[in-house]
Write a protein that binds this DNA or RNA. Sequence first.
DNA 1: GTCGACGCGATTGTTGACAATCTCGTACCA
DNA 2: TGGTACGAGATTGTCAACAATCGCGTCGAC
Lengths: 217, 217
Amino acid sequence: MTSAPREGRAGQRAALDALRAALLAGDVVPGQRLVEAELAETFGVTRASMRAALIELTSEGLVERIPHRGARVRVVTVDEAVAITECRMVLEGLCMAKAAEKATDDQIDALLQLGAQMRAAVGDGEPMKYSALNRELHRMIREIAEQPVATELLERLHGQIVRHQFRLALRDGRTHVSLPEHLAIIDAIAHRDPAAAEAAARAHLHSVIAALRETES
Amino acid sequence: MTSAPREGRAGQRAALDALRAALLAGDVVPGQRLVEAELAETFGVTRASMRAALIELTSEGLVERIPHRGARVRVVTVDEAVAITECRMVLEGLCMAKAAEKATDDQIDALLQLGAQMRAAVGDGEPMKYSALNRELHRMIREIAEQPVATELLERLHGQIVRHQFRLALRDGRTHVSLPEHLAIIDAIAHRDPAAAEAAARAHLHSVIAALRETES
DNA sequence: GTCGACGCGATTGTTGACAATCTCGTACCA
DNA sequence: TGGTACGAGATTGTCAACAATCGCGTCGAC
């Protein structure tokens, strides 16, 4: 269990990972105040360690810190989520173009297999499984692309909008829109066509942006 | 002067800004050790404040911190600089496309005027002035694009490669390659052509990447 | 009755001291 | 002579107490 508080030892790292996990899992609601002393006791570390963790999470964009007024869970508006997704769009496009250039035959086989699993998950009406496969697909593509900078940026940006992503995934019929877009990406990489891969990535995230905008009624 | 050490007051922010300025200005050589106590005394803040600043600068990618072994100025290899520039390429492309969509007549006038100044600076053989105008151009475009997320990412990435940028700017004839690329970007935005603006941005940074690669002999 | 000043409780920011860990030079041994 | 164990010094990580600041409720004046 990562939630087991370890007294003192490696306090900062423990506090950082524990709080980040809690934020990404949605255990704390956006806008909620994050009082240093309170969190420190919860996670079994000292206030200094928790303070360092909060500073780092602020840099990651998960937490908002105002001088002398404390930290809160950062609230990401729909407009910000759109801006973030626009950045993800071009960065994913870069990764997928590079993946199309670099993919080995084995890696392409793995991608095709993953695509088949995703198709099956949608056919069987298993959105949670589809979502997990989706994450695995993106992770695998980033691994193939070998673009560490883009990978880090994408992971950071992803962390900021997990809440919105989650809400999107719940929408009915979302998987039926998403699936062919992902299959198109896999197809383009399988054909080693960087331009098509980038275009497919952009088309996919354009669709995500449109869906995001629909939620702001 | 921002470099004047203010005792105690707003220690963390002061330490952060002071050290970041020193790193960006190249006052400390890459790989150099950054001892907390030493820096704290230099900048007139406490060790805790300097520690917080180092954590934040680590997240910004300017500093490398190893547990129990201290912090050092991060060294960015040419390969990393290329990867960073690839990311900048797609993000700048996004900004310029958006700028082409959103630019007002006044803003286009300002861009054209800046372009004329840049042309003049190159003609007069003033690379430092050209470099300053260059930065101003990119800043202005980001302002027009109104894409805060991309802007922040670009500034962060830029900070990591100032040293390489600086070395590039010194190369003879670099401005004569760079100028027409920038003028093409301005032209595309002035014509409100997002696709052309993005293509011009990419062409420019492709050229920067090629120049970077040439430096790794 | 409304507006502004004051003070209290809560929370963050800072300080100095202490403990844990690492680096590097030195001595010892095969 | 080469290699390993040891220890001193330096540096980071941790801790608890103290000072500064902020939000908010209360009180008083007009």
